[in-house]
Simulated scan of single mutants.
Amino acid sequence: MYNTSNSGDLNPGYYYWQDTKWQRLMPQGDIYSNVKYDGTNFFYINDSGNEVQIDLEELVQDIETNTFIRKVEAVVDADGKVTSPTVYYYFSEEAIRNWLAADAANTDPSTMPNTDPGVVEIEIASDIAENFEFILNKTITYEGEQKTVEEIIKMISSEVEGNVIYTEVGGEMVFQYYNGTEYITIDLGDFVVKNQLTYEVKGGDDVNVANVIDENHTTYTVEVKAAMPKFFYMPTILFDTSTIQNGLTVNLHQEYIDQFTAANIKKNPNAPATIPHLPSENDLHYYVTDFDDNVIDIVEITDTGMLTYNVINNSGPYSYVTVVFVVK
């Protein structure tokens, strides 16, 4: 059936009866199907076959996203210390809708509080820290070449003259520092000498230390006694008992040194040139363990090994005395 006039909610056109109402037919030659534009507005045909204007503004508002991100800058005090870091807040569609519905006065989402339910605080700092290595390894085009972010940072930093730089001077690569006026070459040799670790060497029960000091160094000569026996017998010497007299002396340590360092020592070809010995009289304790007390009276032995004795009976030109050295 073709309707020739507006009748109720029916406009002119072809119709057929179905489900207790007239349904409009859309012939192939019709200029539009269910939407048309008249140069100003858009229209669609409703279930009754009538043209209804489309409100594009309302349509767009219904389907567009209203989410946004708000940045709150860091707070820095007068000393340059950050008292509050930079924070980003994400406002979702759901949060915005709930805020608008909560109060008729809520009309502008840009005024929503950061603390409103559904607003998400984004931890930018931690996110960057966790993905820093990934960021450094990202490749981008820099000066016409593909470079990683880390390579670009290194290239830029090498070209920036900061307080200390590494550069070529006179054909040599050197470190320089900026003194406020010019760059001064750093003498690394002098720097190392002045800032190297200093070790203190001390003598002990088994170590004798002698040192020679120059301008920058101290050279230590260390004689180790740990490998030596704890005691040994003094080399053989003769005690003069040819005349009865008092106050005779023998320097036990010096007699020992004279024999161990004598120029006429005989040795096998592979033996060292010198015999190991203790050069200081304070390295030893001195003991007389046996002597002829009918001929000699031992008066005293000092801590430095000076022995004083008296000849009390003339029994011959010489007499024996057994001396033991104990290593301190």
Rank of each mutant, 00 (worst) to 15 (best):
Y2M: 04
T20S: 15
L25C: 08
Y32I: 00
Y37A: 03
D38L: 02
D38T: 01
S48L: 12
G49L: 02
N50D: 05
N50R: 04
I54P: 03
L56I: 09
T67V: 14
R70N: 07
V72T: 12
E73I: 01
V76N: 08
D79L: 11
G80E: 03
S92D: 05
E93M: 09
A95N: 03
A95Y: 04
R97Q: 07
R97K: 14
R97A: 06
W99E: 12
A105I: 00
N106K: 08
D108Q: 10
D108T: 12
S110K: 14
T115N: 15
P117V: 03
P117Q: 08
G118A: 07
V119H: 05
S126E: 15
A129N: 09
I135D: 07
I135C: 11
G144S: 07
K147A: 11
E150M: 14
E150H: 10
K154W: 08
K154E: 15
G162W: 02
I165R: 10
I165W: 01
E172V: 02
E172P: 02
F175A: 09
N179Y: 02
G180C: 13
T181S: 15
T185I: 10
Q196K: 15
Q196Y: 05
V201R: 14
T219G: 04
Y220F: 12
E223R: 12
M228I: 03
L238W: 02
E255I: 09
Q259K: 10
F260A: 09
T261M: 07
I265D: 04
K267R: 13
N268T: 09
N270P: 03
I275M: 07
P276D: 06
S280N: 13
S280D: 12
E281K: 11
D283C: 07
H285Y: 12
D292Q: 12
N294F: 04
N294G: 10
V295Q: 13
D297K: 15
E300K: 14
I301F: 04
N310H: 13
G316E: 07
V321E: 06
V323P: 00
F325N: 03
V326W: 01
V326Y: 03
